[in-house]
């Protein structure tokens, strides 16, 4: 079974400001990006993260961007990830 971690060249997460989280998936070819895009519907990503997510295809970079609100403002007491750089892991095992 191929997982997203096998298909993608980059799966990275990062804050876009302290209230938004953004996850970028970069692929080597448009076909790979399309294959992942078929699985990463907004509904599927929202279900995985338990939060409403936007999914934006970005053909110039063979990429897919996911954007969602952070559950907690970056750096607030209780935050687990101030930079938001370790929020990609849920995607790694997704079968494509």
């Amino acid at each position: 079974m191929t997982r997203l971690a096998d298909l993608a060249r980059v799966v990275r997460s990062k804050n876009a400001g302290p209230t938004l989280l953004t996850i970028d998936l970069l692929f080597d070819t448009p076909a790979q990006a399309a294959r992942a895009g078929a699985v990463l519907t907004p509904a599927a990503v929202s279900a995985l993260y338990g939060a409403p997510a936007r999914v934006i295809a970005y053909p110039p970079g063979n990429a897919i961007k996911i954007v969602m609100a952070r559950a907690i403002v970056a750096g607030d007491p209780g935050d687990r990830d101030v930079y938001g750089a370790q929020q990609h892991a849920l995607l790694l095992e997704v079968p494509v």
Binding site: L20, T22, D24, Y58, P60, G61, V67
Partner: peptide, 10 residues
């Protein structure tokens, strides 16, 4: 691809 980085909209 760098246009994506830390951006809400590429």
């Amino acid at each position: 691809a760098h246009a994506l980085y830390e951006q809400e909209d590429p």
